[in-house]
């Protein structure tokens, strides 16, 4: 995205290529599809948290360590991080441009990647190694 001052006219004019001209439709669809998956994620989350809040490790291993719960939850969590990164991109596109935007986008990618990796490894640990 090139350096530009955002105004209503700039956003409305397709020639300014406000946002990412090549990828915005894909971003839009990713956000809709991952949003649907997130409804399922929320179901899992409420079940897992209300079942396990304040419980000890043995209980955590019993519930999340159950592959039928842990593995789908890990997949759903990865989709959440895609939705997180993509949604934050939407916000960053609105307030920043040029190099500032790129910098924040890099931080966004690193943060969501860390969430995905730590989350998935923690769940896999509980599932396969207890």
């Amino acid at each position: 995205m090139r350096e530009q001052i955002l105004s209503k006219a700039a956003i409305a004019n397709p020639k300014t290529k406000y946002g990412d001209a090549k990828a915005s439709t894909r971003h839009f669809l990713l956000q809709r599809l991952s949003g649907i998956s997130n409804v399922l994620f929320l179901g899992f989350l409420i079940f897992i948290v209300t079942r396990l809040a304040g419980e000890d490790r043995a209980e955590m291993v019993e519930v999340i360590g159950n592959a039928w719960i842990g593995l789908p939850f890990a997949v759903l969590l990865v989709i959440v991080t895609l939705h997180m990164r993509n949604g934050m991109r939407d916000i960053l596109e609105d307030y920043f441009a040029g190099r500032t935007y790129s910098l924040y986008m890099t931080l966004n990618t690193m943060w969501t990647l860390a969430i995905a990796v730590i989350g998935v490894f923690s769940i896999l640990k509980l599932v396969f190694w207890g």
Partner: peptide, 11 residues
């Protein structure tokens, strides 16, 4: 959420 999961995996 991830902090909680990581803590559980840790010990």
């Amino acid at each position: 959420l991830v902090l909680w999961l990581a803590a559980a995996a840790w010990g």
